[in-house]
Design a protein around this nucleic acid. Structure first.
Lengths: 221, 221
DNA sequence: ACCTGAACACCGTTCAAGT
DNA sequence: ACCTGAACACCGTTCAAGT
């Protein structure tokens, strides 16, 4: 049984392999039906029965990406599990920086996403977050983590040290007094992975605080 | 002085008006150079001297969006100011749901973004966040707020009540035990604006906790 | 200086035809 | 059942030409 794509499932897998490679190597814009087809060695129209249209193909890439995320050891303490999950997401985001930002653009209803959500739910319950708040806090955490990693992948935080300096100098200092006052802390090179860990620490303290407050507040809706 | 676009600046403004209207009415995909040009009553090539290429046009839309965000009363307490800013962002995101998600995809180095960042910096200092941590906490807050509102605009949180139910039923209950246990809290219709306010409350408690911890930890890098 | 018209090198997708 | 080839209705952008 060679790895040749003989069955339909293999064919779909080969197409998604090609599309993911293209996205990793040349960005999302390079993922065209034509380019993917050429890489598979087939005509563009031959893709449609296997992956659907372009939108479905991108969803397929997201499914791949989600399936890659390693789940933490269920025996570990809840905090370690959430940190491990966040680090797993970061590793996946760094492996597929072009595809990762799509996570914020598409509803995450795939079964691949559910494994991850399930693991977060379990950790939050163990942390003592009241059941009615668990779904909200899960969305809060995942929104931050995905938002941060997507920002990093998209370069939203700026090129590091050069941009902030010129940002402040192109505007009169008097108009941005607080930027001026914070100048010593704005020109530093930032270690974005270290900042992610610091943010994560603050967010997990927040989870503990929510758990400590107890079920008083109740659900949000 | 009629409102006719006679000067170059007026011309650029008219083009961005047309592009924004197109984005609001028919989505980002409808914002093509050709469609914008037609709406302005000009040939596609006539846009280039005024707004640059397509990418620059989208950046122009982001600039418009950022300029719309109302700054809070500087006399109000820091917490109220941050809530007002978040609500201002939410209002803008709901006015321009197609453009808003671009905030996470582009570096926010425009002067329009700096006014907002300046206001957040000022509020965080007043809250007692140590100076070295202010830029990090600003990025933490804005990443969450933008991420949440972009998720809402993109429908990432799902269509409300129908999707979660079918998510759980298409998978054997034994494989997602925690989803199963949380079922009563997963089938509810969620008020996303109320959830945003609850999240905001938790995030601002976190800001107070960071301030209370003092400068012990120091900067992250 | 500003705009037009034609053209180039692409897209995603349809459809009828092949095997 | 699966794939091809030609075609359709689009894109963003270039370039030479008009005024």
């Amino acid at each position: 049984m060679p790895s040749q794509g003989r069955t339909t499932a293999d064919r779909r897998a080969a197409i998604l392999d090609a599309a993911m490679a293209l996205a990793d190597e040349r960005g999302l814009d390079a993922v065209t039906m034509r380019a993917v087809a050429e890489r598979v060695g087939v005509t563009p129209m031959a893709l449609y029965p296997h992956v659907g249209d372009k939108q479905a193909l991108l969803d397929g890439l997201l499914g791949r990406l989600l399936a890659e995320i390693a789940l933490p050891d269920p025996a570990a303490p809840w905090r370690d599990r959430l940190v491990a999950l966040a680090h797993g997401l970061r590793a996946t985001g760094q492996r597929h920086p072009a595809v990762f930002p799509l996570l914020l653009a598409r509803p995450s209803v795939t079964t691949g996403a559910l494994r991850v959500v399930e693991a977060i739910y379990a950790a939050l319950r163990e942390a003592g977050v009241p059941d009615p708040q668990v779904p909200r806090v899960e969305r809060l955490l995942s929104t931050f983590v995905i938002g941060y990693l997507a920002s990093q992948a998209n370069g939203r935080f700026g090129p590091g040290s050069s941009a902030p300096r010129q940002r402040r100098t192109q505007v009169p200092a008097d108009e941005l007094p607080v930027h001026h006052a914070l100048a010593p802390h704005l020109d530093l090179e930032v270690d974005w992975d270290a900042e992610f860990d610091a943010d994560l620490d603050d967010m997990l303290r927040m989870v503990s605080a929510i758990a400590a407050r107890g079920p008083a507040g109740g659900p949000v809706s």
